[in-house]
Amino acid sequence: MRTSRIRTLMRRTTAGLLGAVAITLTLPADAGAAVESVRAMTWNICGEAGGPPGDPSYCPYRNEPKKKAQAIAAVVRARRLNVVMLQEVCSGPPRRGAAKGHSQLDEIQAALGRGWSPAWAESVRPDGRSDCRGALSGTLSTAILVRGKISDRPRPVPLPVPLHKDADRSQVLCVGVSGWKTHVCTTHLANTEPLLAAGVYDKEIATIKKTVSAYPRVVLGGDFNMGLYNHKIPARLQPLYRMMPECDRKSYAPGDAADEPTHFSFDPRTGTYFESKIDYLFGTAGFTGCDSWTELADHADYRHTRQPTGISDHAPLYGYTKAS
Rank of each mutant, 00 (worst) to 15 (best):
H299I: 03
G115P: 08
L17G: 06
F287Q: 03
L240N: 05
I233A: 01
R80T: 08
L9W: 15
G222D: 04
A253N: 08
D152V: 14
E48K: 10
A253C: 02
M1Y: 14
D259M: 13
V35M: 06
R129P: 01
D248N: 15
D313Y: 04
V175Q: 01
A40Q: 12
R7S: 12
I233E: 04
T8D: 06
A297C: 08
E275S: 14
L81H: 04
A198C: 03
M1V: 12
D131H: 08
S151I: 01
S324T: 14
A49N: 08
R77D: 00
I278H: 01
R147K: 15
V200C: 05
D55R: 01
K232Q: 10
A78S: 13
A22V: 07
Q70T: 12
D301E: 02
D106C: 12
H314D: 10
A167D: 14
V146T: 10
G92H: 11
A33P: 02
L81W: 09
I311K: 02
E64C: 02
V157R: 04
R77M: 00
D267W: 03
Q104P: 05
V38G: 09
A121M: 12
A235P: 00
P60Y: 13
T13N: 15
K210R: 14
S137I: 13
K149H: 10
K250E: 15
K67H: 13
G138E: 09
T187Q: 10
R306H: 06
G271L: 11
D291H: 05
Y273T: 08
E36S: 05
P53F: 06
G176M: 02
G134S: 15
W120H: 09
A300C: 03
T294D: 07
K181C: 09
M85L: 15
N191V: 10
G319Q: 10
Y252H: 01
V161C: 07
C185S: 05
V175E: 01
N230R: 10
T309I: 05
G19C: 13
V212E: 03
G286R: 04
R39V: 10
R125A: 14
P118C: 11
A119V: 06
G271V: 13
G286E: 07
A197K: 15
A198H: 02
R39L: 12
H299M: 09
A121K: 07
T284E: 05
R303P: 07
T294E: 09
K209I: 05
L86K: 09
L136F: 00
V200L: 10
C59N: 15
D313G: 08
R96Y: 07
E122K: 04
G113F: 07
L220K: 00
E204K: 08
I150H: 02
W180M: 09
H164A: 11
R7E: 15
Y318C: 07
A99I: 11
P126H: 03
T207S: 12
F264K: 11
N191G: 08
S324V: 09
P261A: 02
C59W: 03
G101W: 03
G283D: 12
R249H: 11
V83H: 06
P316V: 02
G47I: 03
Q87M: 11
G50C: 02
P93N: 12
R303A: 06
